[in-house]
């Protein structure tokens, strides 16, 4: 299933499963890029979560008139 392009604010606060006592240091959000000043120490920034798998609807020829906007 294709993930939504825009995660919005929900992603801003999402933290990923962390080990006990580990500092919350990994966040997923496109917004982080624009808030560098307050999020200086993140190890991993998820700009785009991508897709879980290639879906049949993700067809998109890259040339010619046959391109279908899908996904």
């Amino acid at each position: 299933m294709r993930l939504p392009l825009r995660q919005g604010c929900a992603a801003w606060d999402r933290t990923w499963p962390l080990e006990a006592n580990e500092p919350i240091n990994v966040k997923s959000s496109n917004l982080l890029l624009n808030r560098r000043s307050i999020m200086k120490e993140e190890r991993i920034i998820i700009v785009d979560e991508g897709i879980n798998e290639v879906t049949p609807e993700a067809r998109m020829c890259c040339m010619g008139p046959y391109m279908a906007f899908r996904g």
């Binding site: 991508g50 290639v54 049949p56 993700a58 067809r59 998109m60 996904g71």
Partner: peptide
């Protein structure tokens, strides 16, 4: 404007249901 993202493609020729 939105434009299709760069992502894996599945050509309709390879799609057995197309």
């Amino acid at each position: 404007y939105n434009t299709p993202k760069i992502a894996p493609t599945f050509c309709m020729v390879d799609n057995k249901s197309s």
